[in-house]
């Protein structure tokens, strides 16, 4: 059987879904991040001065872009796959000869596309406030894609395990947002003191933000290779766990 057709069908369906509801999916991050840039970057940032040799505005732009990629790649997959489960149209895929890896790749691709598209929108908005020249475009793009992949996978797992709409909002509100804010979007990890310096190393988002910031403006608090290993390791673990759940039929089969 030609799996590429099934994969293409899922990916197209997923992209069409978030483009169709663009006022809910693409417009809000543009407005929210414009406010971040205005308030934190322009108004407050001018009084903060330089961090690691970069202006505060330049320093926060990569973090805000990546934070948008994280939250939108996650929320795309979690809401789409949970709705598919809730409306029971997951059965359309389960009765068809679609292998589990195609289902996973299809939904994760949808999350990656939305995450990257939101990232591009936020980057365009940032150009109104900052004049950034991307120093390492390759690293920037790879970190963006890997981060979107990782959080799309996390969103998929959340959707598979969720039993109600409440369950799909708990992780974004109580885990992702705090970890993103604490992961160094608005500050340098070097500013932390004592035990916080150690605790922050357990926050995976910190590695991604620093790797992305390195790609864009050449500033990082951590080793880039370690960051890539962390992101890659998480992707492998989450992908294998997702495939295992699909194989067992967790949350989708009786």
């Amino acid at each position: 059987m030609n799996y590429s057709i099934a994969l293409k069908t899922i990916v197209k369906k997923e992209i069409y879904r978030f483009l169709r509801i663009w006022p809910q999916t693409l417009l809000p991050p543009a407005i929210t991040t414009a406010l971040y840039f205005l308030i934190f970057g322009k108004l407050i940032g001018n009084r903060i001065g330089m961090i690691s040799g970069a202006t505060y505005m330049d320093y926060i732009v990569p973090g805000i872009i990546l934070m948008s990629i994280i939250s939108h790649s996650y929320s795309n997959v979690v809401s789409s796959f949970y709705s598919t489960k809730f409306q029971r149209n997951i059965e359309e895929l389960l009765v068809a000869p679609v292998p589990n890896w195609v289902i996973l790749t299809g939904y994760v691709s949808g999350g990656i596309f939305r995450g990257l598209l939101v990232g591009i929108v936020v980057a365009l908005i940032s150009m109104l406030f900052a004049d950034i020249v991307v120093l390492h475009p390759g690293i920037t793009i790879i970190v963006a894609i890997l981060t979107a992949t990782l959080f799309s996978l996390a969103g998929f797992i959340n959707a598979v395990l969720a039993e109600s709409f409440d369950d799909i909002s708990i992780i974004p509100n109580f885990v992702l947002t705090p970890l993103s804010y604490l992961g160094g979007v608005f500050y340098s990890v070097d500013m932390l003191t004592g035990i916080w310096q150690t605790l922050i190393k357990g926050n995976p988002i910190m590695y991604m933000i620093n790797a992305f910031r390195y790609g864009m403006i050449g500033v990082t608090d951590i080793d880039i290779q370690l960051a890539f290993m962390m992101i890659g390791g998480f992707i492998v673990v989450l992908a294998l766990f997702s495939l295992y759940m699909l194989h067992k039929g967790t949350g989708i089969k009786n």
Partner: peptide
């Protein structure tokens, strides 16, 4: 196998053609 389930289980926000066309895609139909 083709299955017609007891309860409506397609995406209620899709068009009629979209629902049927997507299912053909899942079965690998060009």
């Amino acid at each position: 196998i083709g299955l017609v389930p007891q309860e409506v289980n397609f995406n209620q926000f899709d068009t009629v053609q979209g629902i049927v066309l997507n299912q053909a895609g899942y079965y690998g139909t060009p």
